[in-house]
Amino acid sequence: MSFEAKRCGVQFSPPSIVLIYEHKETKTIRKRIIPVRNFSKYSDYSMAAERLKNHPRHRDYLEGVSQSQLEKLHIILRDHMQGFSLERSLASFNLDPDEDLNKLDDEELARKKGQMDELFEKNRRHKDDPDFVYDLEMDFSKTTQEKCSWDEESDDGF
């Protein structure tokens, strides 16, 4: 792959996804502005993200950008079209570790998953990585000692 995605963001006018990437052969950093067409405040962010991810002209550039990150960017664009401030839009992605995510609807959950995916992608080992090991094993049984505070206030089963 000759493009490595570095950062991505949005531009509100005209609605676009902005991608900063490195061209691996020339070692140059470039910016690509991808206009988001046929996308309104009523559009499905998930389908739009998928369409973009598979777009013949853009897919090579977007290979390193996950579906959920593209969904997140589309949600931000749509929030803007619906008149929400950027602050409010971004706040909706924040993770509260104590929140019960089982109670969220599809879109609210997608916002949280998009946020979690950033860490996932950051730590992710790809099968094309030179040091990739499919069956990676680590034994933690010897290091495990500390009692977990989550087990306190224990009810049955804990």
Partner: peptide
Amino acid sequence: IDADLKVTQRSFNFGKKQ
């Protein structure tokens, strides 16, 4: 566990009884 490897030093007791 990639988010914070320190958690692997803790023991989670749910399921131990079973």
